[in-house]
Design a protein around this nucleic acid. Sequence first.
DNA 1: GACCAGGCACATC
DNA 2: GATGTGCATGGT
Length: 208
Amino acid sequence: MNRKKQRLSALKLYETLYAQYGPQGWWPGRTRAEIIIGAILTQNTAWINVEKAIANLRRHRALNFETLRKIPRAQIAEWIRPAGYFNQKTGYLKAFVQMLHRDCDGSLNRLFKLETPALRKKLLAVKGTGPETADSILLYAAKRPVFVVDAYTRRFLAAHGYKKTAAASYDSVAAFFTAQLPEDVQLFNEYHALIVRRAKAQKRTRAE
DNA sequence: GACCAGGCACATC
DNA sequence: GATGTGCATGGT
């Protein structure tokens, strides 16, 4: 007798979420620069606080790489303070814009000419850009078919019977999804957005 | 006043 | 490769 609980495939889980919540049309920023800056600022931080930091940068016309490269660290740190870890994240933003300036003449288009594996490697070489941040940039700014694994993703897996996978390495979790899904940028985008949407819906339920 | 939130680098074993 | 620690704000 099979005593194991039935688990839905990654694709079936997606279809279930999509049926319940519909398309999210999610986009974590107005420009590619804003998406990248947001990806760095949101590390281990609630998005609401990232929005405050982004708003500060926008107000000071600093929501672009050229400005961030030129202004002093203390100034950036002050503006992104609401996002937490502001000294570290200032260094991370500086590291990214310096790489872009040094290797691509400050041009995101030039950086994004790289093929996905080479681009991912290049992003991971930037201090402060780990796998999740790199993949967020790849999916949401460079529009590559890459699955983003974050805390929401792991909780989602655990909640649907995949506790072991949820606790596995970053690349293992990503492989779990990519092996079962078509390589589709829009699908990966929607999937991640739906996981976040579901988590927020459940949080609201718990709070009531 | 704990506890948590869309990580990452670095040290150590 | 696994585990532990520092980094910091703002909401619940």
